[in-house]
Design a protein around this nucleic acid. Structure first.
Length: 663
RNA sequence: GCCGGCGUAGCUCAGGGGUAGAGCAACUGAUUCGUAAUCAGUAGGUCCGGAGUUCAAAUCUCCGCGCCGGCACCA
């Protein structure tokens, strides 16, 4: 930190309205607020000085832009409230559970958490008492005080209190950084700040939400702490709105819709593997047919490779050493049928279900000699892979142990990498656009600590990906050090109903596997060269992508994806034969149809097919049967449209075309 | 894998040492009805599994398993 300029005797403060106020150096933002008006002084939560959020009582020693932050400044107010709320939680917990150590308590999206070290477990039943204590502390209106301590004294102080985690944090703070300690009444915590002037400013629109274990410093080798999550808002109304939003989001949960719409199920004998039901598999088949067409038109060739390969094969590819703990292994032996005998002797060689398709694709590439003229080869496979994911990681369709990727590997020359990257980005944009997916976050994952290949190669590869993203006009975050060991990657993330981010598409540059598996082509010069391998997936996996689509559409699929596209419902049994004939014609036109001849009132049928999220309902009664018409009703609308049956079939057929085949 | 919670009918949930409950769904019957719930009746259970305590366990204890929420991991 650079030393501040020698304090001038006067500071000139420019307020947001452009007015300038002059004070003696050392004036505080709180004082300025009071001078502007008592209302502002009361509402003041903190201040922004030269863009930085600061405490109201921090002395200002130089001139600059100053803005008083109040509850009306949503982003700042929420940040301050949530940060103070984390402190409030820690203060309450230490009051109620002596001996509990505090660690860290940051603000997160929609709330905050605090990690505690305590031998006895907390239970959600403790929340009520903790919240009550927090409210009491708000009522007590404890003033905030900031002190700057000497580093060694601070470490000694927290050690003496038995707060070894805090002491460790202080010891790790960069030299030269102020060790600031905030007091809220008698309670104090090491903190960078800033904080509200007193606990009353936090308000009471908060709620503790979840309890979880979390490793100290995010490292599973460290002790596990107890994390308490909470949410906090400016007022009760916002809190209520947030809780309502969460409730609504839960209704979009793909696991819930999957059951309600009879799309798929899981059971414990095959945990992490999906049982796709007929209606769910319709969705799968549409996705597969669609992406196959998109890839065909983009110059891909499709292959199919083995599920089960010998361990020797995986040793060569590097998976045996790098990925084995995620693999399912199978002994290549005939199991014993003898009573009491061990199932297998363990003498046979081990095989493994493939966790990735890439090494198998390399085998196909290596059949025969490839010329530079053959490249690029875009080899795709709807490859079914198995990964032995940790039990705690499994999550509906989003994280499974058996998955099918819309995988492909592009073997190309160095000089083709940029073109191929751009080509993929175009394909990606077209596909996600077809599904109306716009909320995509792009990440460029760069070289990890442990990696193969020279820095030269990495420089080139990372720059190449960044250039492609720029050329495509995409803004992206850099995920420092999160690349694969063999190369950097682009990650395309989608967000689920409750805000969790999942990687779907991916695009990776690989210079290592071709080397490892000795992949070559013959160049123009007659010499052997290494191709570059681009690993890429558009959906990622059918499972995860389907899960995200279910949540994206909340089960109300566009016509081309809907498991049941049309329901034909009769008003009286007099229309049964007409309805059956109509359904037959719809089916002949390639549509997925249900015929509802049940002896129920039409209101009942309308309700049922609406709840089933069937996009189009054709109601037929005596009148329609007599006139050869249908009454067409669309999901979500009470409107009806009477059409000649022929016209209705033509129109629905047209609307049901997949986006790549739409007229 | 780790921490916390949960596990009762197809679904949503109540019950908490003494004969297992409701609503919806299912089934049967009646009703033939014009755009989001017609009425009546019937059937449905290894209360996740195993062991223990007890005269008696869905209920209490222990051990497993699964699921949910996080953490770690992660294409």
């Amino acid at each position: 930190m650079s030393a501040p300029a020698a304090p001038a005797s006067e500071v000139r403060l420019t307020l947001p309205d452009g007015s300038v106020r002059t004070y003696g150096a050392g004036v505080t933002a709180g004082r300025v607020a009071a001078d502007i008006g008592p209302g502002l002084a009361k509402a003041a939560m903190a201040a922004r000085f030269e863009g930085t959020l600061i405490d109201l009582d921090r002395p200002l020693t130089r001139s600059g832009r100053l803005a008083i932050v109040t509850r009306k400044d949503e982003a700042d107010a929420l940040e301050l409230i949530r940060h103070d709320c984390a402190h409030l939680l820690a203060q309450a917990v230490q009051a109620l559970f002596p001996g509990t150590q505090v660690t860290i308590g940051p603000v997160i999206e929609d709330g905050f958490y605090y990690d505690f070290a305590r031998n006895e477990p907390f239970s959600v039943e403790d929340f009520e008492a903790i919240e009550a204590k927090m409210r009491a502390l708000v009522d007590a209106d404890l003033p905030t005080r900031r002190e700057v301590w000497d580093r060694d004294a601070a470490i000694a102080h927290f050690e003496k209190l038995g707060e070894s985690y805090k002491a460790e944090i202080i010891a790790d703070l960069p030299a030269g950084e102020d060790i600031s300690v905030y007091f809220h009444g008698d309670w104090h915590d090491l903190c960078r700040g800033p904080h509200l002037p007193s606990t009353k400013h936090i308000g009471k629109a908060f709620k503790l939400t979840k309890l979880a274990g979390a490793y100290w410093r995010g490292d599973a080798r460290n002790a596990q702490l107890q994390r308490i999550y909470g949410t906090a808002w400016r007022e009760e109304k916002e809190l209520a709105a947030y809780l309502h939003r969460i409730e609504e989001a839960e209704k979009r949960d793909h696991r819930r819709i999957g059951r309600e719409m009879d799309l798929f199920h899981f059971q414990e004998e095959a945990q992490g593997s999906v049982f796709w039901h007929p209606k769910g598999y319709v969705l799968w088949r549409q996705l597969e047919a669609y992406i196959r067409r998109r890839q065909d038109e983009d110059g891909y060739v499709e292959v199919k490779t083995p599920q089960l390969l010998a361990s020797k094969f995986w040793e060569q590819s590097g998976h045996w050493s790098k990925f084995r703990e995620n693999m399912f292994v199978v002994p290549d032996e005939i199991p014993s049928t003898e009573e009491g005998a061990p199932l297998v002797t363990g003498q046979g060689q081990m095989m493994a279900l493939k966790p990735m398709n890439c090494p198998a694709h390399v085998q196909i590439f290596k059949q025969g000699i490839k010329s530079y003229r053959d490249l690029p080869i875009r080899m795709s496979e709807f490859g079914c892979c198995h990964r032995n994911e940790a039990h705690g990681a499994l999550h509906g369709l989003m994280r499974v142990r058996q998955m099918t990727q819309d995988d492909a590997h592009i073997f190309c020359r160095d000089d083709q990498v940029t073109d191929e990257t751009l080509r993929f980005l175009r394909l990606f944009a077209r596909v996600y656009g077809d599904f109306g997916l716009t909320d995509i976050s792009y990440r460029l994952a760069t070289r990890p600590e442990v990696r193969a290949g020279s820095d030269d190669v990495w420089d080139r590869a990372e720059a190449s990906l960044a250039r492609a993203l720029d050329a495509a006009g995409l803004s992206y975050a850099i995920a420092e050090g999160e690349g694969a060991f063999y190369g950097p990657k682009l990650e395309f993330h989608l967000t689920d109903a409750i805000g969790r981010s999942w990687q779907c598409g991916t695009f990776q540059l690989d210079y290592v596997l071709p080397e490892r598996l000795d992949v070559t082509y013959v160049g123009e010069d007659g010499q052997r060269h290494r191709p570059v391998m681009l690993h890429r997936a558009v959906f990622g996996t059918f499972e995860r992508f389907a899960g995200l689509l279910i949540e994206h559409f909340a089960g109300r699929f566009p016509l081309w994806l809907a498991p049941v596209q049309v329901a034909v419902a009769t008003i009286t049994s007099d229309a049964d034969s007409y309805a059956q004939a109509l359904s037959g014609r719809l089916r002949a036109a390639g549509l997925r149809v249900e015929t509802d001849l049940r002896n129920e009132k039409i209101t009942y049928k309308v309700r049922e097919h609406s709840l089933a999220k069937t996009p189009i309902l054709l109601v037929v009664g005596r009148k329609e049967a007599a006139e050869g018409t249908v009454s067409l009703r669309r999901l979500g609308s009470p409107d009806q449209e009477v059409l000649a049956s022929e016209a209705a079939i033509a129109q629905i057929t047209r609307e049901a075309a997949p986006p790549d085949r739409a007229a």
